[in-house]
């Protein structure tokens, strides 16, 4: 276990601020994503098909903007960004989020499998999940069904798939 993170807000304020700030931030992202047609998977697709870089530059800017901000904020308030830069503090194990308690090698396998699946499905169904959300809000009913599918997928993954994956991955001698 690591020490608890200490952010800019106190814990009492932060537990109330989570829904408020994320709702406001989401509104801003949704507005900008609709205006710009932002799409992470579409950026790579347009580059490979047409050598268009408009959307790809957006995704690159996301990575660079996040890195620059993490660096500056970490220098100013290290307690809120405790393990930045992650590879230097935590080695090869990933930032938590994938099924917990596995070997580093298992996470690499899951990242490759997950990544390939995400890339193929995203391209074939016309965009990344952010694009599916904005298309839903533009009135696209196919995208709405994709979003409904994601919600169902969340329950299926957490109730079933996660357990299978953990038991398979723990059964492998890495």
């Amino acid at each position: 276990m690591t020490m608890a993170l200490a952010g800019w807000l106190s814990r009492e304020a932060a537990v109330i601020a989570v829904p408020v700030i994320s709702l406001a931030f989401g509104c801003l992202v949704g507005y900008l994503a609709q205006r710009s047609g932002f799409c992470s998977i579409g950026g790579f697709r347009d580059f490979f098909l047409f050598r268009h870089t408009r959307l790809l530059k957006g995704y690159a800017a996301l990575v660079i903007g996040a890195f620059a901000a993490f660096l500056v904020f970490w220098l100013a308030t290290p307690a809120a960004f405790e393990h930045f830069p992650w590879a230097l503090t935590s080695g090869l194990s990933p930032v938590p989020g994938a099924p917990a308690g596995l070997e580093a090698a298992a996470y690499i396998v899951l990242a490759v499998i997950g990544g390939i699946g995400v890339g193929i499905i995203g391209v074939l169904l016309g965009g990344c999940p952010l694009r599916q959300l904005t298309m839903t809000s533009e009135g696209n009913l196919k995208a709405l069904f994709f979003v409904i599918g994601m919600a169902i997928g969340s329950v299926i993954f957490s109730a079933l798939v996660q357990g299978w994956v953990v038991s398979v991955m723990k059964g492998i001698a890495w």
Binding site: S40, I41, Y59, L62, V63, I64, G65, A66, F67, A69, F70, H83, F84, P85, W86, P94, V95, P96, G97, A98, P99, Y107, L110, A111, I113, G114, G115, I116, G117, V118, I121, G122, L125, C128, P129, L130, Q132, F145, F146, V147, I148, G149, M150, A151, I152, G153, S154, I156, F157, S158, V161, Q162, V165
Partner: peptide, 24 residues
């Protein structure tokens, strides 16, 4: 959507969190 979610949660995030994690 179901499959996308399963693959994304396997890798611990969609392309957006992956971007943040690369930045991290």
């Amino acid at each position: 959507g179901v499959l996308f979610m399963v693959f994304a949660l396997l890798m611990g995030g969609c392309p957006y969190r992956v971007a943040l994690r690369v930045g991290y």
